[in-house]
Amino acid sequence: MRTSKAILSIGAVMVDVVCHIPNLPGRGEGVVVDKRDTLIGGCAFNAGNIVRQLGCPCFLFAPIGSGIFADFARKELADRGLEALHVETDLDCGSCTCLVEPDGERTMVTSPGIERCFERAWFDAIDASRYGYALASGYEIEGAGGEAIISFLEAHPEIEFFYAPGPRIEGVGPEKTARINALRPVWHLNDLEAKSYTGCSTVEEAARAIEAESGNAVVITEGAKGASVLSGSERIFVSTESVKPVDTVGAGDSHLGALVTARSAGRSWKEALALANAVAGAVCMVSGASLSDDEFAASGIHL
């Protein structure tokens, strides 16, 4: 590996309630769930679990609060040998209801918890010299604690930052986005988010618009098609193998976790995209946002 430094996965550990439904209900309608799973999730966990499974050291800088969801999260993390940030608080971890249609597409309803209330003092215990890379999502940065996350990254520009704004891309706001771009992050987002944010009609145009703001590489996923990276004058697209999805919950987070791990190990952009595509495809073939260790081993995926 190119570096022995760990990856800091900043964000949320939450409880996902994954509901498979025949169709999304319209306004005022109801729907009966065909199948329900209660699983650990959250952007920091989803990405960090893949980092761990790929063999890279990782710390979940994600607060675990106090309550029924926090108790569930602690047990699930312990079962995987993952550490997270434990804070004294009356706030519980958040939850996310994922409505999954027959084709695997998911629609999310999120109930926030401690993960959107980061405090600057929490970062004081971090030995920043241990970390070469950090990742965070727009969900946490949009919240009141986003200021604390950005301030930490500003204080440690030596840590390479991967930013995944996700569906909260517009809610983060121009002031926070400008500060994030000043850090020269690698943006990681999907095609719909990229085109909506920039107003561009094509993925390549959207990537170039974001690159002009951030001054660094831009990675855009395109679902079953694959993913691309724009880095300077070079645009690399890597297609993905076709899979039959159970759901798409956590696919983007897992793609990010694999991508950061591959880059930390010195892999080229093409190699990193190929690995990330394979991981995201495998996650789509199970219920929920992550692979168990047995499922990961059976996939045959490795650095």
Results as ranks from 00 to 15, higher is better:
3 T>V: 04
4 S>K: 11
5 K>W: 07
10 I>W: 05
13 V>Y: 07
13 V>C: 15
14 M>S: 14
24 L>F: 15
31 V>I: 13
36 R>W: 00
41 G>C: 11
43 C>L: 08
46 N>F: 05
53 Q>M: 13
54 L>W: 10
64 I>P: 06
71 D>K: 01
78 A>F: 05
82 L>R: 03
84 A>T: 00
88 E>T: 15
89 T>W: 04
91 L>H: 08
96 C>Q: 04
101 E>V: 15
109 V>E: 10
113 G>C: 13
116 R>I: 15
118 F>N: 13
122 W>V: 09
123 F>T: 12
126 I>D: 05
128 A>L: 09
130 R>Q: 14
142 E>F: 02
145 G>V: 01
147 E>Q: 01
155 A>L: 00
161 F>Y: 11
163 Y>C: 00
164 A>Q: 13
171 G>T: 01
174 P>A: 14
177 T>W: 02
178 A>C: 00
179 R>H: 06
180 I>N: 07
183 L>S: 10
192 L>W: 15
192 L>M: 12
194 A>C: 13
196 S>T: 15
200 C>N: 05
203 V>K: 13
205 E>Q: 14
206 A>W: 14
206 A>M: 14
209 A>P: 09
216 N>D: 12
216 N>H: 07
220 I>E: 09
224 A>I: 03
225 K>Q: 12
226 G>V: 00
227 A>R: 03
231 S>T: 03
233 S>D: 04
237 F>N: 05
238 V>I: 12
243 V>P: 12
244 K>D: 13
252 G>S: 10
252 G>Y: 05
256 L>Y: 01
258 A>L: 09
261 T>V: 15
263 R>I: 15
264 S>T: 15
266 G>K: 10
269 W>F: 14
269 W>P: 11
272 A>R: 09
274 A>K: 15
280 A>T: 00
289 A>M: 11
290 S>D: 09
295 E>C: 02
296 F>R: 10
302 H>D: 07
